Every structure is written in structure tokens, then in C-alpha cells.
Amino acid sequence: MSATDVIHIAGRPVGPGHRPFVIAEMSGNHNGDIARALALLDAARAAGADAVKLQTYTADTITIDSDRPEFLIADGPWKGRRLHELYGEAHTPWEWHEQLFAHAAKIGIAIFSTPFDDTAVDLLERLGAPAYKIASFEMIDLPLVARVARVGKPMIVSTGMASLDEIGEAVETARANGCRELVLLHCVSSYPSPIEETNLRRIPELARRFGVHAGLSDHSMGLTVPIAATTLGAVAIEKHFTLARADGGVDSAFSLEKEELADMVRAVSDAHAALGDGVFRRAAAEEGSVTFRRSLFVVEDVPEGAEITRANVRSIRPGYGLAPKHLPEVLGRRARRPLSRGEPLAWDMLG
């Protein structure tokens, strides 16, 4: 695959020339309620997102139950929480997955997930996941990257916190194990992430350095960063979403509400449409304006044989006469016939 190739996720083309593939990240915003998880799928579909992404793990597959200091979160939105406790609250129960995949198929939105171990990949394969996401924190787990790559489906890899060497190792591992369709997402793994630290110019650099498609996994507040990323060529935008931040939940504080998600989909679509192809040509919408450009007009009656001067010919609007650049050639010529005030000047009027 080259950086110009289009890949497909659940039938949707992803790549240059297509509006960004919008991934609505559910994460733990279901708040432990399957009905809310289903409502989140409906909300993402109504907002125009292309896909909903889950996270497939249990507290025991991602960490261990320990009270040691290493397993306590020191700061950030989850300050003071034990990892095992947090992940137990945030995880999407595996017994929900089949129902969520079935509902997504029913309403017509793609669904896939981030697996955190081999057993998660096995589950997602049984459900027919059309693609896989590797989270920023797992990108350095090269055996997991290799396991997912061997499935042979499109991979989306977040690069938060990673050095260039680490990104290179992940890309090399994915390709060596059969991945042919790869998207790298620039990401700042801070929740929420400060806009001034977003460094969006890394998006085209990721595409250039690694010969892949590049996009954005965004944890900033608002829509500014996704829109700017689109103008820099992001082919995919991932954003956490919730029904309402006031409902609470482990990720709600930095998630878009469903109406904001719809606004983002429209905004990045408009931003992509505004980019165009860079070709220098008159826009179709400008055609009606051409006649209002300046041109040379007769501004005083000119008898036949009289000299054309700055007093009787001027550059004015509208644009039906000769182009203003011809004024020096016109001055000093003679009128072949009587010219009337208000006539657009043409070559056949001059001797």
C-alpha cells in the first residue's frame, strides 16, 4: 500500500479524495448500561459518523487487581483510582458485543473495536469486525500488533506518546505480519489534551515518513482541532462521544455530546469539501460574476474618425468590453464609426 491508495472499511473508502472517516469512540460512556450503549449507536448513526468503536477488554485482561502504588493513578481525570477498579467500571462487557454488532448492522453503521489481548481478537473475529484499532498505550505491544496484523484486515494505530522509532517498529511489525491497509492516527494522550500541544503538523509527516494514510485521534475540547486536521490531510478523525456530559461516566468530561458530534461531522465534511484539488481554474460559482469585472467602455460619444483618449474610453464595470490591459494599445486609435456612450469597446470599432 502507498500513501495514495484508498482502503475500505466496511465498504467505506478511506484515503485522499474522500471526506474524513469519522469514528465515534464509545469507550466507557455506556456507563455500564446496555440500553445506553445501544442508544449511543443510534446517536452516532444519526450524527452521521461512519463508525462506532468499542474497547474490548476486561479488568483482568488489561491489568491485575493490586493495591500497590504502581497500580494507582496519580493525577488527571482519574486521579486516585485503582487501575483494576477503573477498568472494571469502564469496560464493555463481552456478552454485549454480539448485540452491539447486530444493532449496528441493523441501523447501518460500521462497528469495530480496540482489542487488548489475543482473546479479544478471537471474539472480534467471530463477530466479523471489519477493522481493528490499536490504542496508543498498546502500540508498543508488538506481539499484539503482530496478532492483529495476521488477521489481514485494515488496522488503525494511534501514536500517542510514541517516538519515531517506536512508530517505525509498530509499522514494520504490522507490515511484516500481513497488514496491507494501515492508518496511523496522530494523538496526544492527555485527557483532555491542550490545543496548544496538539502539533497537527505531525499528520502529514506521519503519512510522508511511513508511507501510510494518517489521521487524528483527538482528545481536545471542541471542534477546532478536527477541522484543522482535515485541512492538513487527515483521512480519519476519531473522537469520544456521549449522550450528555452531565450524565457522567469515566470519559464523559472530554467527550462530545451527540449534537456536537453531528456538528463535527458537518464541519469536517465542509472543511474537506473546501480543500478542492488545488488546480488553478475559475470556480463554477464564479461564472456569474465574470461580467462584473472591469473592461473598456466608451464613456463619451466619439464621432467617426475621432481619436480614442482617456476622456472618452475608460476601464469601468461591467466586463463586456476589451480587457483593461489593452488600454495603452487603444489610446490614439481612431473610431471606425460613431461610438455611443455606454458601448463596450471592441477591436472592430477601431481603425
Rank of each mutant, 00 (worst) to 15 (best):
G233R: 10
I107P: 03
G28I: 03
A46T: 06
P204E: 02
A234N: 00
A306I: 08
S217P: 06
A228D: 12
E25A: 01
A273D: 14
L164Q: 14
P13C: 05
L206G: 00
D67E: 15
M155F: 04
F241Q: 06
A90G: 07
A273H: 12
E166F: 02
G288S: 11
R82W: 12
H97T: 08
G152W: 01
I316G: 05
D122Y: 06
A131N: 05
L100S: 04
T114C: 10
L206A: 01
L206E: 01
V148A: 06
Q55I: 10
A110G: 02
I227C: 08
C179A: 15
T58F: 01
I237T: 00
M155E: 07
L216A: 11
M221D: 13
L275M: 14
A267V: 05
H8S: 15
V330K: 06
L142N: 09
A104T: 02
M155A: 06
D348N: 14
I109H: 09
N31Y: 06
T119Q: 14
L124W: 07
A306D: 15
Y191F: 15
G48L: 09
I156E: 04
A284Y: 10
V171Y: 07
E169K: 15
R150W: 05
T230V: 05
I7L: 14
T159M: 04
F101C: 00
R337I: 09
P143L: 03
F292T: 11
A135R: 00
G48E: 10
D65W: 02
A59G: 14
K153N: 02
L243C: 02
A146M: 10
A214N: 11
A267M: 07
F280K: 14
H272W: 13
V22I: 12
S189F: 07
I156G: 01
A162T: 02
L275H: 01
R150K: 15
E95Y: 11
E257V: 06
I109R: 09
P318A: 05
A176S: 15
L86I: 01
I237W: 00
F137Y: 14
